[in-house]
Amino acid sequence: MTDLRTPRLRLHPIDTAEGDRIVGRRPAAGDTWADDFPFDGDVHGVRAFLNATAAHGDQRPFGHYRITRTADGKAIGGIGFKGQPDDGCAEVGYGLSPSARGHGYATEALAALLDVAAGHGLSRVVADTTADNVASQRTLERAGFRRVGTNGDLHRYEVPLDAPSRPTLPR
């Protein structure tokens, strides 16, 4: 599978070897990481990807992607599907290293992942975030998601992939 490209980012579908390096926080020769990559959220997301891969085999295209900023070639975070689609729906999660936050990168990466989901026939994508994570809520809203409910401290969001209001990025 090839990398996904946006105007400012490259989303690289990771394999288990790269996943092991990220979880172990041990870059190999050729890995170019931001000083604060991976952060704890990256490790958590990649560990879930590795567990799913061990249990069910290759997850791509519904796996995990390393987010790399094209301006400097540094890995700044991750984004991915939390498992294989079910009944036309998939759940996503994402995170950026602290130094990369506040620049719209998460929204840009999320739009690219929504294109993958739509291109593989999914009808909707869901995500959740905690009530106190206002930045993540705004990211989801900028990517076209709408809050559809709450479950305790979690806010549940979804976006129909055929929605005319869903933002698309120039390629």
Rank of each mutant, 00 (worst) to 15 (best):
T2D: 13
H56G: 08
R147K: 11
G93Q: 02
P160I: 11
R124S: 12
C89R: 15
L50W: 03
P38S: 07
V23S: 05
R66I: 01
H12D: 06
P170T: 15
P170E: 15
A163I: 13
D162K: 15
D72K: 04
A112I: 01
M1P: 09
G152Y: 08
R166D: 12
A52M: 13
T150R: 15
T150S: 15
R69A: 04
R138T: 14
C89P: 06
R124Y: 03
A54W: 09
L110W: 14
L114V: 09
C89H: 12
T107I: 02
H64R: 05
H120Q: 11
E18P: 01
F145D: 12
I76D: 02
A52C: 08
R147N: 06
R69D: 01
R147D: 06
C89A: 14
E141A: 13
D86R: 14
L11R: 02
A48Y: 00
G95A: 14
T168N: 14
D36T: 12
P27Q: 04
N133E: 06
E91D: 13
N51K: 06
A71P: 06
I67V: 05
A106C: 11
P167V: 14
H64K: 03
A55I: 05
G57H: 12
A135N: 04
L4K: 09
A55R: 12
S97R: 09
A143D: 13
T129A: 11
R124W: 01
T2Y: 01
L114P: 03
K82P: 01
D42T: 03
T107H: 01
L169D: 09
G45K: 05
L113Q: 04
D58I: 03
V116E: 00
G80C: 09
R47D: 10
R60V: 03
L96I: 00
L4I: 02
R26G: 00
E91Q: 10
C89F: 05
A135S: 10
V126T: 15
G149C: 09
H155E: 14
K74V: 09
R69G: 01
T168P: 11
G30P: 09
T68G: 03
L4S: 06
P85H: 04
A127F: 05
T53N: 08
A17E: 11
P38V: 07
L11G: 00
N51M: 06
